[in-house]
Design a protein around this nucleic acid. Structure first.
Lengths: 146, 146
DNA sequence: ATCATATAAATCGTGCGCGATATGGTCGCA
DNA sequence: TGCGACCATATCGCGCACGATTTATATGAT
C-alpha cells in the first residue's frame, strides 16, 4: 500500500483560510482604526446596519459567535456611543440592540472601505463574488453535524 | 450616478473567510483535544514536522505570526514535552526548536486528521487543492504593501 | 398555582493575536 | 576597543473566541 504523502502547510485549505483571514484583518486594521472599531466590532455593526433592533442571539446566529464573545464586544460599542442595549419589554431575557445616530452615520464609510478591500484583493468583483460563494459553501458544509 | 448597493455580510469575501476559519477551528477542536493541542499549536507542529530545528522567526515567517504570539505558544508546547527551546550556540539571539520523540510521534495522527477534514469539507481532493490555491493567492495579494 | 424544563445573556478562565516596548546579542566601523 | 545600528526574542496590555457555568426569565405540564 502506498501512503499518502504528508501534506505540507501550503497544501492545506485550513491554513490558507487561516492565513487569509489574518491578512484581511491586517488590511482592515488601519482603516477601522480611524473609525475606532475592531474587525469583529465592524462585523457586528454590519449586522445592525442591515437590520436595526436585533437581539444578541440574532447577531450571534449571523456571525456564528457565542454570547460570551458578543456581550463584552457589544458593551464596548455601547461605551463608544454607537448603540444601545435594552431588555425587550415583552421578553425580559432578550437584549435588543439599537444604533445611535453616531452608529448609523458610520455606515457612510462603508463604500470607501469596500473599494479599498476590492483593490487590495487584486480581484474583480465577479471573481470576489465567485470565491465568496465557494468559501461560504465550504463553511456551511463544515458546520453540518458530523 | 448610481450608488453601489450596500453589500450584506453574505456578499463579503472577508466574512466568508472569517466564518470559514472559525468553522475549521470547530471541526478540528474535538480531534485536537485528544492530542492536547490547540489549532495554532497544531500549525506550529506542522512546521516542525516538515523541518525540525527551525527558529522562532522561521516559524513566524511560515505562519505569518509575531514572536509575541509564538513565544507563549511554544512555551506551552515545551511544557507539554513536545519540543525543546534552546538558544543557538553560534548566535545567542536565536531560539531553535527541536521536536522531542513525543512531538515527533504525534505526526502519526496526521493522516487520520486529514481524512476527517476532507470528509467534513464535502469536497474532492482536487476541489480542495483548487480552492486552496485561490485562497492562498488572495492572501498573498492582500499581503502586498499598499 | 407550582414546579421542572428550557431559553437568553452574562460571567469566568484559558489561549490566541497584535502593537508597543524591553532585553540582550551581533556586527560594522571609527 | 568600543559604540551605534540592527536584529531576534520576550514581555505587557488589550480585545477576541470558546466551553463551562450562572442568573434571570419564560413556558408547559400537571
Amino acid at each position: 500500500m502506498m501512503d499518502m504523502p504528508a501534506p505540507s502547510l501550503d497544501d492545506m485549505l485550513c491554513f490558507a483560510v487561516y492565513s487569509a483571514n489574518h491578512a484581511f484583518n491586517r488590511v482592515y486594521k488601519p482603516m477601522l482604526d480611524r473609525l475606532g472599531l475592531t474587525y469583529p466590532q465592524f462585523l457586528a455593526m454590519m449586522c445592525l446596519w442591515q437590520q436595526d433592533g436585533q437581539t444578541v442571539g440574532q447577531i450571534g446566529d449571523r456571525l456564528f459567535l457565542e454570547s460570551s464573545t458578543l456581550t463584552p464586544l457589544l458593551k464596548r460599542l455601547e461605551a463608544q456611543g454607537l448603540l444601545t442595549r435594552r431588555r425587550d419589554h415583552t421578553d425580559e431575557r432578550v437584549v435588543r440592540l439599537h444604533l445611535t445616530p453616531a452608529g448609523l452615520a458610520m455606515r457612510d464609510s462603508l463604500p470607501e472601505l469596500q473599494a479599498c478591500i476590492l483593490e487590495a484583493s487584486g480581484m474583480t468583483l465577479e471573481g470576489m463574488g465567485d470565491l465568496t460563494r465557494q468559501v461560504a459553501a465550504l463553511r456551511d458544509h463544515l458546520r453540518l453535524p458530523a
